[in-house]
Design a protein around this nucleic acid. Sequence first.
DNA 1: GATTTATCCGAATTGAATCCGAACAAGCGT
DNA 2: ACGCTTGTTCGGATTCAATTCGGATAAATC
Lengths: 223, 223
Amino acid sequence: MPRKPKQQRSQATVNAIIEAGFIAMAEREPATITTRQIADIAGVGVGSLYEYFENKEAIFSAMSERFVADTVALIRPQIATLVRMPIRDAVRHMLESFRTFLQENDGRYLSCIQYAMTLDFERYIDPLQQTLSELVTQYLMNHPDTLRVRDIPTMSYIMIHGGIFAVVRHLSDPSPPITFDQLVEGLARMVGHYTEREIAMANATQEHLRAKEPDETGSDREQ
Amino acid sequence: MPRKPKQQRSQATVNAIIEAGFIAMAEREPATITTRQIADIAGVGVGSLYEYFENKEAIFSAMSERFVADTVALIRPQIATLVRMPIRDAVRHMLESFRTFLQENDGRYLSCIQYAMTLDFERYIDPLQQTLSELVTQYLMNHPDTLRVRDIPTMSYIMIHGGIFAVVRHLSDPSPPITFDQLVEGLARMVGHYTEREIAMANATQEHLRAKEPDETGSDREQ
DNA sequence: GATTTATCCGAATTGAATCCGAACAAGCGT
DNA sequence: ACGCTTGTTCGGATTCAATTCGGATAAATC
């Protein structure tokens, strides 16, 4: 039922509506935002919302979509650079730029990611996850020694999901128990230590072709 | 405005309403649940909902509260046992029992935790976080060597939040890219490797009172 | 400038959440 | 057992926000 905007006028309306959504999101609880408020902020009639959006949900979805697209646009160009950095620096660098990104425009995207995490989740987090997976893959290809860590898909899954959530949760917390810098350093160490330890263990196993320290290698099972 | 239930009859009603909430949550999207549905499932009139609950939200809150309380009740008694296990085993053990817990009663709690994460967040995740923090503290006290890892609050923050989210996300995902067992093993390795590496680094630093491998120790800054 | 097409609007409709006052049940003193 | 008070239940009436609809206005096309 909602139509595609064909004139530049209507495209501006669509944009105003999405912008209004971000503004409203920044000042109220998402659940308490009404269509009338969005329309008022956007400077259009309520009816106009429904010319281009199925329903109120759809407006929020469009916001999430734009947010995720912007995030991907933030990360993707950095991949080439990140991939050449030591792993801890790469993590640090990416997280700092992500923080800056989330906090610009009065933290409009911060409200948004919280919303995106609640509702659609799969649909809107997936592209982000895809991008990060791509980053990991590229990284591995540029650092052949890191290919020795076991069960890379799992570790990538843990680092991506755990990392995203820890950061979002921290940025949403009005009085976090640790600083953001501590969080970044912690995540960097976590990832760095893990890969180093795995590489060391892989090397150790290879060198003594047969076990000599069942203590260390005894817990190697999976993969 | 909502009153406290004084007779056992009304206490039963309150319970029926919360139960109905769980049942409804298990079969429909939380957003599409209506008060009439809840009332019908509970076998009471719609008006009765408002005798003990401020509004529909409050019913969901009560559910979250019960869920979190049950989760804490699940973990707390295990602390004494977990604290004596090697760290990887403790992680494995805890996650397995958590999975079992989430999936009993047709996974009613699974829908619930997703909801709890959306709305109140602080209020309902906090007690869980408290409990896990307590577990970490106890663990540290029982394993004095682990006290050598740097910035324990931060690492505890990362492991708790990242771990909770990775698990919840995995259990919510209809077609996860990795198995739950892989996730558990991965988290166990992550935590285990990290602590071991930190301890090793602390020992190394102590032994050669002055640096000899600026490569390794060069990235030690914080704390 | 007439006609078609796109856009905009806000009063009317719809449906769910919430309120309310009457009916019903329990406790309780007599 | 009986009347009185208090707790409880109920579902129709009310309220309020989302969505619809049909006409008004503006741009585009010929």
